[in-house]
């Protein structure tokens, strides 16, 4: 437990100071400290990317049936969760809990996924 608390206090001290500007290797660096907005934006864009890829893939195969919407939601939430909990190892309590983190960009990603899925399915299979 000690290692975890020392990490959160360390990232906490940096929290008050200026958060280092965004850099790409920060994306995979569990030591980096994250500002709430920066982390929210990264999770938002991850969700949109997963939505677009799944939409295009489901439409191209094609996968038909509402169950695939549920599977997309589970897949995209799983990816977002694994990213912030395993890759970044952040303490979710500091960022508003799992609810806030998993809700980031959710609605936009669902509409983007449905749009890509319907479009590719309609254009290439009819």
């Amino acid at each position: 437990m000690k290692e975890k608390s020392s990490k959160s206090t360390k990232s906490h001290q940096q929290h008050n100071g200026e958060v280092p500007p965004f850099s790409f290797n920060k994306l995979l660096d569990p030591e980096a400290s994250w500002d709430k907005d920066q982390l929210g934006d990264v999770l938002h864009w991850i969700r949109q990317a997963v939505a677009l890829i799944c939409g295009l893939l489901w439409g191209a195969i094609p996968l038909v049936g509402a169950i695939w919407i549920v599977l997309f939601l589970l897949l995209s939430s799983g990816i977002v969760y694994c990213y912030y909990a395993i890759v970044l190892k952040i303490d979710e309590e500091e960022y508003g809990g799992h609810g806030t983190l998993l809700q980031e960009g959710m609605f936009a990603s669902i509409t983007l996924f449905l749009l890509a899925w319907i479009l590719v399915y309609s254009i290439f299979h009819f």
Binding site: A108, T111, L115, S122
Partner: peptide, 20 residues
Amino acid sequence: CAMVFFYFLCSMSIRSNLQK
């Protein structure tokens, strides 16, 4: 699929992501 639903999906996903 009618135009209304498709347009709803287009404007929701495009506008929110563009604003972001």
